[in-house]
Design a protein around this nucleic acid. Sequence first.
DNA 1: ACCGAGATGTAACCAAGGCTACATTTCCAG
DNA 2: CTGGAAATGTAGCCTTGGTTACATCTCGGT
Lengths: 141, 141
Amino acid sequence: MTRRSNKSAHSRVRADHASEIAEDYVEAIAAILVEKEICRVIDLAREFQVSHVTVNRTISRLQRDEFVTTTPYGPIELTPKGRRLAQASRRRHEIVLRFLKALGVSDATAIQDSEGIEHHVSGETLQAMEKFAAKRLGSGE
Amino acid sequence: MTRRSNKSAHSRVRADHASEIAEDYVEAIAAILVEKEICRVIDLAREFQVSHVTVNRTISRLQRDEFVTTTPYGPIELTPKGRRLAQASRRRHEIVLRFLKALGVSDATAIQDSEGIEHHVSGETLQAMEKFAAKRLGSGE
DNA sequence: ACCGAGATGTAACCAAGGCTACATTTCCAG
DNA sequence: CTGGAAATGTAGCCTTGGTTACATCTCGGT
Ligand SMILES: [Mn+2]
Ligand SMILES: [Mn+2]
Ligand SMILES: [Mn+2]
Ligand SMILES: [Mn+2]
């Protein structure tokens, strides 16, 4: 076991990565919209620590895929599809974050690790994490 | 908290991804070497479910970075550096896998999810996972 | 009103990782 | 020993996501 049984988990990982940027962007956009009511290219450049050019081109792809809308020099908005993805991504991210903290990991580390882990957590695992965190923090302890 | 405090976890994630293929390849090569004593391009193409061309070019990069050695039409071998990375990657992967199983996730799901998660687990989190799995499966139960 | 700093856009480049199509090499079954 | 199937290599293509350099637009403070 353990070795050589996995048909190809790697294809799944590649698929996870293909949707990762969309998930992180719409999640970030939604968060910025909440606390600043307007989202601009530079906000995302700061958040992701990339150049504004990278943000521009990413936003183009997201617009092509109908997650966001924007106009030249205008702010960035979410489509309904974008809002749905943002909501789901935020929920999953928060569950993973809470889970890591419940596991006993420091806040700083939990924040860092959850940013990558979130994209590789299946529904089944997410449920297990949720349950675990609930048992740890929920009402007891 | 939770929102807007993370300076940039995203840079860390990008760094994780940059080393991911090297880790997975050397880990796979080491495993193949154990049970077949020779590793060929086609073995890796099957393992990762990619074309042999992709494997070729990846192996070139790994050779450039001194993780593997190979010759035209020859088998693929690990350098000492490659062996060290393989060993460390295997260990981390196994801890994550055992951890997910200990959490109550099914074997199939644990195999899938651990393949992506492993690359985003910091030392601190890995230790927490190890400890948890030990408590769950270690001597009790 | 206007002007300059900061935000945004665009051009051109790069590396990684995918692919298909085709060429070449290996090596074993007959 | 040899023919051909399987393995390997090579050429050329694509998308994503990163960069710097430079051009243009916007808008708030004087
Ligand atoms: Mn993320
Ligand atoms: Mn990942
Ligand atoms: Mn692995
Ligand atoms: Mn992996």
